[in-house]
Design a protein around this nucleic acid. Structure first.
Lengths: 221, 221
DNA sequence: CGCAAGATTGATTTTGATCAACGGCAGTGG
DNA sequence: CCACTGCCGTTGATCAAAATCAATCTTGCG
């Protein structure tokens, strides 16, 4: 399933048919750990993640951290309709985004209504991810959580070489996202590898060796 | 468990009260545990919860249940833009909803712009609740989860007598929502009561005795 | 009353967090 | 070039929290 809203492709599609030239999106890059300050200007913008990953990070009183949601490649952050009160948006990796002015983004949508539909689809997907994520967090064991996360990565991220699944995030961010400590997560990786359900040599490139079994685990037996 | 197969049946109940266009919403009541079957007809409808609570229930392979989100009084379920693929919508209590035809709902929004504003606000709130809920589930202890839940109920539900907080849901649903077993949840209630942070005589009506302390716990120390 | 469903409490087991040590690797600087 | 350092990931030992198993209590209801 593709939930890509490739605005760049679209923007380049029919330049001649547009009376008022649509400005090209501005690409911006950020270092890991960059936090986005939510000011009035940002609140009129739309980001489309072009590379890397942006997370919504929450801090508990004693320093425990959790990441409630992640925006991967091609996912849309529309700050005009986004909850900017809960958590902090932070770059989990080196990030590149396409930045659109909100009005400009809307003009693009008017020219091509299907673009709006795609943005809506992306929003609904975000909802779906959140619901599934709650299920993962609420009742699943560490190994089940990891299995779920691997499938989530496969469906949300482009594959690596030989169809390997790119986990993209580093261990500490996966742990914060899945509600585990790093050590527990590491043991879950080791367990799945030892039992020949997955394999990896690079920490962030995983191959599924036994998909039915892994799926069973992700779904809770 | 009752399955609603055709909402048209009751939509036809009061034809006399509807001239050309439906002006009055149709009220419909459901017994606890009623599951909504997501068919094409329902997908054109909008519900506004009038009483009770509707939950999105998910089943793991071995029977573990979790409720990923809850719709309380006055909250809007717009099936036209709702993810209907994940989980099952189920009545957690005796439920009454106002049922609107989607188009009619949109026409009403033009007449009463505040309705549209409320729907948008409710959607953003649903997002926010989901993000907070992930934080609650990911890292918090049982007592912290319960403290969070009590505050969530206070902000989402009308107060009871003497300003008491209505928990509305029964223990097993609270447990499924907060990712705890019933017994663990019960112990958390007992602990908060024993330590004089909350008080209750009815299981579903809680008073906060020491709000700052309870807030601290909800936020993780 | 007798029964069923919901809620609580107690005893034990399991799971994941915590504490601690270690290995690999990239960047830095003599 | 190699030692040093910091970051990241892994593994082991112990501890604490929640799940599980089991029994009991409460309440509403035919």
């Amino acid at each position: 399933m593709t939930q890509v809203t490739n605005l760049q492709d679209y923007a380049n599609l029919h330049p001649a048919t547009r009376p008022h030239a649509v400005r090209k999106p501005v690409y911006k890059s950020f270092k890991p750990d960059t936090e986005f300050e939510i000011d009035d200007f940002l609140k009129s913008q739309v980001f489309v993640v072009s590379a890397g990953a942006i997370g919504r990070r929450h801090m508990l009183g004693d320093g425990r951290e959790t990441i409630s949601s992640v925006y991967f490649e091609n996912e849309v952050l529309d700050f005009r309709i986004m909850d900017t009160a809960t958590g902090t948006l932070v770059c989990l990796l080196p990030v590149t985004v396409r930045v659109y002015d909100g009005d400009e983004f809307d003009r693009l949508k008017i020219e091509k209504p299907e673009l709006g539909a795609r943005q809506l689809a992306n929003m609904i997907n975000q909802h779906r991810y959140a619901a599934r994520h709650c299920v993962d967090l609420a009742r699943k064991s560490a190994v089940e959580k990891l299995a779920s996360f691997i499938f989530e990565c496969r469906s949300r991220l482009p594959a690596g070489r030989d169809g390997a699944i790119c986990l993209t995030l580093k261990r500490s961010d996966i742990a914060d996202y899945m509600g585990l400590r790093i050590e527990t997560l590491s043991r879950a990786f080791s367990k799945l590898k030892r039992e020949r359900l997955i394999d990896y040599s690079e920490v962030d490139e995983v191959a599924i060796l036994n998909e039915p079994a892994l799926r069973q685990i992700a779904n809770g037996r």
